[in-house]
Design a protein around this nucleic acid. Structure first.
Lengths: 312, 312
DNA sequence: AAGTTCCATGTAGCCAAGCTACACCCTCCT
DNA sequence: AGGAGGGTGTAGCTTGGCTACATGGAACTT
C-alpha cells in the first residue's frame, strides 16, 4: 500500500481527470496511467474504469481515495508537531483571494510576515461562491466569502475559519436625495435605478431579497463585476450600488449608507484543505488573517468614518 | 515527509540499533544509514545521535517514531477496509507461540485454514513473560500467556485478545497418597517434593504463592522448563508438578487434580502490533483462535476427562 | 595494553522504479 | 468527417535506493 498511489487516487477524486492531475502535479498523463496500473497490480483491485472520454474511480478506488484523506491528515499532523517542536513556521504559503477581500487583508498580511521565514505566493480570482472550494486544491489558503452563511457552498470538507463579517452598504452619489438619511431600508431603495452584478453572483442576492420583500422589481441599469467600476459609475450618477464596506474608500463623489431590514452582510472566510491546514506556517498565516480581519472590522464599525482605525 | 523514513524511525525505536533493523528488514546497515541522512536532509532536523556503540533517537526522531505508529495504523486500517470490501482474507500470517499453548491451539487452526487463502508461518519459543512483546515485532500474532493478569507485562501498546483461561493443575503419580483427593489445597501440597521451573519463569509464581500462604518452604527437587519432561518425571515418582490442563494428556502414570485456594490459572492471549492487527487475515486468524480456545476450554472443563471434546 | 566484537558510516557501482517523449486509440462535439 | 480532449502503450533516460566492501570508533576481554 504505497502512499504515492493513495495520493494519486485522492487527486483523481478531487480533479476528475488524469490530465488535470498531471497538470497539477507537473507530470505527464502517461506517468499517472502507469502508476494506476502498478497500484492495481499491488492491490489486486480494479481502481478506475473508463467513463465516456475520461475515467471514473471504482468503488474500491473511491474507498481508497477517501482513506487517503485520513492518512494525509495524520501525516500532516505529524509534520506540524515536528515543526512546532523544532522551530518557527517556514516555507511557501500560497494564498488565493477574491479581489475585494484581498485588498482589505493582504497588504497587512505581507507587512506582518516581512522578515519571517514564511514566503507568500498570492493569486486572485473573481468566481462564483461554489467555485472557491476547487481553488483549495491548488492554494494553501483561499480567502473566500459567503452571503448565505459562514461556510461557502461546496466547502464542507474543508477547514473554514471566519475572518470577518463585512456589511454590504448602499453606495450613493453625494448629491442623491437619499444621502441625507443615516440608514436605508428596502422601501427607500427599491424604486431607484441600480447598478447590479451579473445574475448568479453573490451580491445579487441582496436586490433579489429586496424585490421579494417589497414585491416590486428593482431595476438594474447595468450589471457589472468589478466593484471599483461600480463605484465610479455611482459617483457619475448612473445609479445606486451595493459595495462592501471595508474596501470602499468614501471618495469625493460617493457616500455609503448602511442597509437595514434585509441581510446585507458577507462572511469572509479562509478555506484550507484539512491536510494543508495542519502545516504550522498555514495555521500561522490563518491566525494573522483572523487578527487582521478583526482590526479591519474595528476600523470600519461606522461607514464613512474618515479617521482610520487604531493601528495595533 | 516520506513514509519510508517514518517506518525506519519506528523500527529504530522498537529495535534499538540500525543493525537489528537491517536484519529484520533484509537490508544492510549502510542502506539504512543513507536513508537516515536523506531523511534528515528532507526534514532539516537531526534525527539520531551517536550513543556509545550504537545510536539513539533525538527528541525529534522520537516524536516522528511515535507519529509513525499513528500513520501506519491509519494506513493499515484503510487496507483492512479495502480487503473487507473486495474479498476474502488472504496472505501470509506469521504466528509465534509458546509451545504448550501452540500444542493446544495450532493443530485446529491449521485444519480450519486449510483451503483458505491464508497461509500460516509458525514459530515457537519458550521465553519469559516480559519478552513476548518483542516477538510481536516479527510475527503478526504472538500466542502468549500471563499468570498475573489478562495482559502480559510489556504488551501495553499491543492489541491483546484473550483466547482462554487455562487452569494449572497438580500432576501426581497415579500411586501418590494424594491421588485419592478430588481437589488439592496449598496445605495438602506444601510438604511434598516439587518439580518446579527455573526462577523467574511464570509457573514459579504458584509455588511462591503457596509458600507465602502456608509460611512453609516448598522444596523443588528439580527446576526444569519443558512440561513434557516434567510430566515424565512425575510419572517416575520424582515429585509433584504443575502442568497446564489443556496440553497434559492424562497418561498411565500421571493424573491431574485441580488446585484450589491459590490463583492457579494462566491467561492465554494473542498479541499483535496495532497496525498488523488491522489486516483482515490477521483478524480472521485471531477470531479462529478465540473459537478454538473456547472449544478447548469446554473440552477440558474437568481434568482427566477421557472423552475428547466435540469436533466442530 | 592489545585484540576482538559490535556498530555506524562512507564510497563505488548496480538495478529497478518512475518519469518523459511520442505514437496511437477512443469518445464526444460540431 | 474532422477536431479536440483524454487515456494508454512503448522506448529510453534518470535517479534513488540498494549491496559489497572498506573504514573507524567505542566497549568488552584477556
Amino acid at each position: 500500500m504505497e502512499l504515492r498511489h493513495l495520493e494519486l487516487l485522492r487527486e483523481i477524486a478531487a480533479r476528475g481527470t488524469l490530465t488535470a492531475v498531471a497538470r497539477a502535479t507537473h507530470r505527464t498523463p502517461s506517468a499517472l496511467s502507469q502508476q494506476l496500473r502498478s497500484a492495481e497490480r499491488d492491490l489486486r483491485v480494479k481502481l478506475v474504469e473508463p467513463d465516456s472520454r475520461g475515467l471514473r474511480l471504482t468503488s474500491a478506488g473511491q474507498l481508497l481515495a477517501e482513506g487517503a484523506e485520513e492518512v494525509s491528515e495524520s501525516l500532516a499532523r505529524l509534520q506540524a508537531r515536528l515543526e512546532e517542536s523544532t522551530g518557527k513556521p517556514r516555507g511557501l504559503v500560497r494564498v488565493g483571494t477574491l479581489p475585494s477581500a484581498g485588498q482589505a487583508l493582504l497588504p497587512a498580511l505581507v507587512e506582518r510576515l516581512r522578515g519571517s521565514a514564511i514566503a507568500l505566493a498570492l493569486d486572485d480570482f473573481d468566481i462564483a461562491e461554489a467555485d472557491f472550494a476547487a481553488r483549495a486544491l491548488d492554494a494553501d489558503i483561499v480567502i473566500s466569502h459567503s452571503l448565505t452563511g459562514e461556510t461557502p457552498i461546496g466547502a464542507e470538507g474543508l477547514s473554514s475559519t471566519l475572518l470577518a463579517r463585512e456589511p454590504i452598504d448602499v453606495a450613493l452619489p453625494r448629491e442623491h436625495p437619499l444621502a441625507s438619511m443615516p440608514r436605508l431600508t428596502p422601501e427607500d431603495l427599491v424604486d431607484h435605478d441600480w447598478i447590479g452584478v451579473p445574475e448568479g453572483y453573490p451580491f445579487d442576492a441582496i436586490p433579489l431579497a429586496i424585490e421579494q420583500l417589497t414585491g416590486r422589481p428593482a431595476h438594474r441599469s447595468f450589471r457589472l463585476r468589478d466593484n471599483h467600476l461600480v463605484e465610479s459609475l455611482v459617483a457619475a450618477g448612473a445609479g445606486i450600488g451595493l459595495l462592501p464596506r471595508f474596501t470602499t474608500r468614501p471618495s469625493d463623489g460617493v457616500i455609503l449608507r448602511p442597509l437595514i431590514g434585509v441581510h446585507a452582510e458577507r462572511s469572509i472566510v479562509a478555506l484550507s484543505r484539512r491536510d494543508r491546514f495542519q502545516r504550522l506556517a498555514v495555521r500561522t498565516v490563518t491566525e494573522q488573517l483572523v487578527q487582521i480581519g478583526q482590526e479591519v472590522t474595528r476600523a470600519h464599525a461606522v461607514p464613512m468614518s474618515s479617521a482610520p482605525g487604531p493601528e495595533h
